[in-house]
Design a protein around this nucleic acid. Structure first.
Lengths: 221, 221
DNA sequence: GAGCCCGTGGCAGCAAGCTGCCACGTTGAC
DNA sequence: GTCAACGTGGCAGCTTGCTGCCACGGGCTC
């Protein structure tokens, strides 16, 4: 990248980011910190999973801190993804104040700041200056402190469900057996139960009884 | 009893009632009508069941109409009993206006009116006068019309649960598995599930999910 | 076209839940 | 004391619910 800590490097597009900075993400050893408005950042189909897997392999217990805006839970899929991240051990928090610039801080030595898209291509600036890192980090931690834990945030607010999920909740709430409900929806029993299991995760329920309770208390019925 | 339709016969105590009028209850063929404040009337352990069984055997499809005060659902056991009666085919309704005098009308020909207890012994008057029967019946049907169906009434109001049942609901609502919950309550798995099944009946739920929903919407959690 | 990703559904095996049956112990009536 | 009634809990057999695995097919890129 650069021998001079005070020279920032700007990378254009996710391709270049992955090529030239991918090893930095995978190489975190002390602490991995990340702030973003939602989950669409770092789309990079396939590659992203590889980097994460690599990092998890080489630094299993690595403390990971992820800060998002509520937008990161704007649909079922995103929320499920976030839950999965937390399940794997990352500390995830949600803050209401906007996080326009995606930020990553690796081991308190490297920061990657994402800029807005220029002509459809996003620019990423890799920073190593200790003073800058410190400044960015302190801003991050200040926001982190005021943010709500993912679990806590989710408890206070119903998940955003699509039409099918709401329909399934309705059928469950009416006491239908899986066999009946799946037929009514034109789904196989297998798929129906897959759906139910997914919904239980979103409702943070460990049993169907609890799910029924949660669904009602969140006003989803 | 009496050859003269216009001679009322008064029986003292349930013993005498059963001895001298039991066959009337069992012998209903057209319609069996009954109004009472609660279920403690006609206690008669054992005998009562026999009479009912006898009647159900000899007149299987007999229309049975039962009108009660909300007091008849004042505890789990009573409510369960009422549900059972309804399940067996009787039409059961609940009216808020007091029904102080227990009344039975058999086939529109015989009425049994219970009076208050005199020195601990209740008196029952058996009436056959057509005019009286008509009068009593029309009063009954007027009240019946204004009363709410048992199912409807129960839907609008939480069942009265004892401490143990509420505790079980709490454990279910927290998502505990049967194994864990039963151990925590010091019950066998079998008994715990018995309890849960009983509660599901009271909640009119056909699945645990529905029970969870009902429990929450009735404010039982 | 080949190759790939994804959603679906069948299947199989397991976990959880449900219930009839019966045996045992307690309680209460006689 | 006997006897009946009742609640409990073990057991067995069943239903319902859950999930990993794999195969198939539609839609996609290259």
């Amino acid at each position: 990248m650069s021998l001079d800590l005070d020279t920032n490097v700007t990378l254009r597009g996710e391709d270049e980011l992955v090529r030239r900075a991918g090893h930095l993400f995978a190489g975190a050893r002390e602490r991995f910190v990340c702030a973003a408005a939602d989950l669409r950042t770092w789309a990079m189909p396939g590659v992203r999973e590889q980097i994460v897997a690599e990092r998890r392999r080489s630094a299993p217990g690595l403390p990971v801190f992820k800060l998002y805006n509520p937008r990161a839970l704007a649909d079922e899929e995103s929320e499920r993804h976030l839950i999965e991240i937390a399940r794997r051990g990352a500390r995830v928090r949600i803050c209401a104040t906007p996080l326009p610039h995606e930020t990553i801080i690796i081991d308190d030595r490297i920061a990657v700041l994402a800029g807005p898209a220029a002509q459809g291509v996003r620019e990423y600036t890799v920073v190593r200056s200790p003073a800058v890192i410190q400044g960015v980090a302190s801003l991050f931690w200040a926001t982190w402190e005021s943010a709500a834990d993912l679990a806590e945030f989710r408890r206070s607010r119903p998940p955003v469900l699509n039409d099918e999920s709401r329909e399934i909740l309705r059928l469950l709430g009416d006491g239908l057996k899986d066999e009946t409900a799946s037929r009514r929806l034109g789904l196989s029993l297998r798929t129906y139960r897959r759906r139910v299991a997914e919904i239980l995760i979103l409702l943070d329920a460990g049993s169907r009884f609890q799910a029924g309770r949660r669904a009602h208390e969140l006003g989803l019925l």
